[in-house]
Amino acid sequence: MVITGKWRRRRYRVERMLGEGANGKVYLVERDRRLLALKVGADTVDLQSEINVLQALEGRAGSRAEPFLHDVDDLKLAGGKEYPFYVMKYVRGTKLPAFLAARGAEWFPIAGYNLLQRLAELHESGWAFGDLKMDNILAAEYGHVELVDYGGVTAFGKSIRQFTEIYDRGYWNAGTRASDAAYDLFSFGVLCVQLFQEKALYRHTAGTLPQNRSPQELLKLASESPELRPFAGWLERAFAGGFRNAEDAGAAWSVVMRRIGTGGGPKKRTGAVPGWTKALFLLSSGALAAVLYWLLLGQG
């Protein structure tokens, strides 16, 4: 199937559907041998409001060398019905749980750090991502992370445009639904708990009265996970709104990473020198002493 824009007449060949967001469906398309993602919206106003955010971000983000938004247009179906769409960069990757299952949980700290950096870029421009959840994050090679679906992005101070209950600060009786950096960091914390305690989290939300939901319960779940235990202090601060923004939170996160040593499993590679190295060292220094002794004696 080929889509042709009504206003700008650009043509896109549709490969397959990539996913579905709150405001529409996203397809993988090809144009001039280049793969792109095309989002078709059901409602013109909702989609345009998302496009406005992307355009504002494009204007401000000096760090992004490659443009994110490529085209905005309408398409007409055979029946005569018209739908708005926009074309954006195609982001490759898998969702975090699949990524960690394939590569190992040792990639969690760096992927988390990279996600905080993505959020920091938004916060710096005065926006919160809003609807931060597993479905909206793609991870790729070397723990590289990208945010997708900007439908929830909200300027600081306004009410969050889109949210998903379990990641929502208000749902956990921990604050407002007004956009600020701490709102995203709260969702980030829930996401961490979900990554390692998914079943326990769902059991908890299903069996708890609304008025009894609290960040303390989330922290309790986190304390039962060996991967999250080093981040307990960080999570407590995030749930309490204790970070100024994601940059601040990222700095604290990297302190924890350095403490636990991110290269390998718990502390092995950065720890003490293995015994056989010591033995070899003693042996070789003994040999050196012998040689020196022989040389000195020989000189004398």
Partner: peptide, 21 residues
């Protein structure tokens, strides 16, 4: 709003979002 070209929609929707908030 659909009758407007995409560039013009942008401004109209910005005003609508502001009013809604």
């Amino acid at each position: 709003i659909e009758e407007l070209p995409p560039e013009k929609r942008s401004e109209v929707v910005r005003v609508m979002d502001e009013l809604g908030e």
